[in-house]
Design a protein around this nucleic acid. Sequence first.
DNA 1: TATTGTTATACTCTATAACTATA
DNA 2: TATAGTTATAGAGTATAACAATA
Lengths: 141, 141
Amino acid sequence: MDQNRTDLAARLDDVVVGLRQLTSTRADLSLTAAATLATLQRCGPARLTELASTEGVSQPSMTALIARLAGQGLVDRAADPRDGRAVVLSLTDAGADLLTRRRTERAARLAGPLADLDDADVERIEAALPALSRLAGVLQH
Amino acid sequence: MDQNRTDLAARLDDVVVGLRQLTSTRADLSLTAAATLATLQRCGPARLTELASTEGVSQPSMTALIARLAGQGLVDRAADPRDGRAVVLSLTDAGADLLTRRRTERAARLAGPLADLDDADVERIEAALPALSRLAGVLQH
DNA sequence: TATTGTTATACTCTATAACTATA
DNA sequence: TATAGTTATAGAGTATAACAATA
């Protein structure tokens, strides 16, 4: 059983790499930039240090990234009224729009190949999706 | 039905992004470097221009990448006996070893969360894996 | 003193343009 | 001429170290 799950993990990883490549954008926003916007949307306004830690980049890198994103009007910087050292970052409407557009584009890139599968395959994927979500969600916390 | 599949594509993309992050390495090799080694392993020896096109980078970028990989002993450069302009790149044993090690590490990172799922979830993922492989494979050709 | 964030500097990876060598 | 690859140069994105301001 353990052996089974190790093998399953390897095969699943292959599939994930393949699917990720299928939808990869390679333009627009960097991977970290997109992830940061998504985090701001999912979790609401956050501090710079908090974001840097969540995305796994250094504080100076996040400073630079936020400067770029703010320059593009995708995030908003505000002083924290209760802590003069801190800044609070939040997603702007333009940032949310961009995320929506990206998600639509990525889904569209999956939709073509998905249409080529037969109904049984689609049903199996659909049935596994909640389990895969739980698997992916483990790290979110 | 079409609407269903569009929705399925969006949810699947979310899961793929999450799982990709779960296994991401952020060290070792760049994304393109790993993909290039994997391509050499999957498809055998190839020319530089061919690799650049497959990985979606410019020819000069691939020149630089191959120089780095060759410097690390991960790929081998050889002159093409039938075309004096061309070079033929191939994966070395060390390159293959590195790929194996990376796959093991990535699978290990999935194995933990996978162990937290109940058996029914694991079975559903297992049942969907061939379908997901077919989905991911569509672009490979 | 510790924490939040910025600035200075350097390294990696990428791109476009201009070049060399072979077909 | 066209094609395979390299070199020159510049820009994005990242890191570590040193700094300023506030708690």
